[in-house]
Amino acid sequence: MKNNITLEDINYLSELSAIEFNEEEKKELISQVNNIIAMLNECAEVDVSNVSNETFELLSELREDEVKVSLDKDEVLKNAPRKSEGYFVVPKVVDL
């Protein structure tokens, strides 16, 4: 559990989220997220030690391995901002 989010936390979360914020936005976020977390921390007092999931699906009920028609070829790249010869295109990816 955490009581106070810092600028460092915001930077970490911003990287995980792939969203950039300017300094002002970060400041606002720290105070807002801290307020929200204070509310979330109300859950801390609840004892959940005897709880377990009871919703299951049986293996036999899963879908059979049967091919159905794939997407219409023209539809696949319809919304892609960059495409070429049937591929989606992004700037060269160097890192693994």
Binding site: M1, K2, I5, D9, I10, Y12, L13, S14, L16, S17, I19, F21, L29, Q32, V33, I36, I37, L40, C43, A44
Partner: peptide, 20 residues
């Protein structure tokens, strides 16, 4: 949406996952 993505990543992050 951005705020909730940040919050979501907070409660799922490896350190916070079990307490949230």
């Amino acid at each position: 949406v951005k705020r909730r993505i940040m919050l979501g990543n907070f409660v799922l992050s490896s350190e916070q996952y079990s307490s949230y």
